[in-house]
Design a protein around this nucleic acid. Structure first.
Lengths: 119, 119
DNA sequence: TGAATATATGAACAATTATTCAAATATTCA
DNA sequence: TGAATATTTGAATAATTGTTCATATATTCA
């Protein structure tokens, strides 16, 4: 029996191991959300913004200046960071001040740095 | 003085704050490397591979089966994970077993999960 | 109100990248 | 050696995405 399950597309796998590991996987939504979160950290411009905000609250113009970028490019990227709840903002007149939303950003950043620096 | 520094392209910024924060920024290479590292976490397929390997060492075929992907696609992605020193491997006959290279992977994963789950 | 400043936004373009498919290696075993 | 299995690799395609540019919105102040 079970012959009909085999064809040239199906590999010979450790069925027991496969189903065991499969059950431990987080659901697809969490996997997707995690990938989306890390994607946000996966760009040099955004990483620079994060590094700058690790120091202190900054407005768009100052971030643009610090990162040698344009206010428009920074604004686009801050939007991405905002959507991922990595930064929050407050308005003061014409100026919008951004800051990191919670301590996870710093923790994720530090873990990444540890990995890089220990290679 | 200093008039010649101003034109329509230069914003009015907090010079003191800008240079202070600029000096605290990691160098461009570290920023780039960090972004490259997180980019690797920023893909659902690779995130699934990482989740599976958090459980135990697995061969390419089993990972493909667990993640509902092809061995070729998984092999391509394992190459990316290998280049970032996130996974290591050992050969046993025809089979290549992959596992996570160090504990940072788990720590980064957990910090990401915490952020997601606390929103 | 109108000018000046700060930020945001939408469309377009260029660049990056994940998957697929076909083919190449590598290894075991009859 | 030759067939079978496991993995890798390279090229091509399709989709995603970061920046730019022009423009829009919001706010202050004379």
């Amino acid at each position: 029996m079970n012959e009909e399950l085999n064809n040239e597309d199906i590999q010979i796998v450790d069925e027991e191991k496969v189903s065991r590991v499969r059950e431990t996987l987080p659901n697809d939504e969490l996997i997707f959300d995690l990938a989306e979160l890390f994607k946000v950290f996966g760009d040099s411009t955004r990483m620079k913004i994060i590094c700058a905000l690790l120091e202190e609250e900054l407005c768009v113009g100052d971030i643009a200046c610090i990162t040698n970028s344009t206010a428009s490019a920074i604004s686009h990227q801050l939007r991405v960071l905002k959507q991922s709840k990595l930064v929050k903002y407050r308005k003061e007149g014409k100026t919008v001040y951004y800051s990191l939303d919670d301590d996870h950003v710093k923790q994720i950043f530090e873990k990444g740095r540890e990995h890089i620096e220990e290679i």
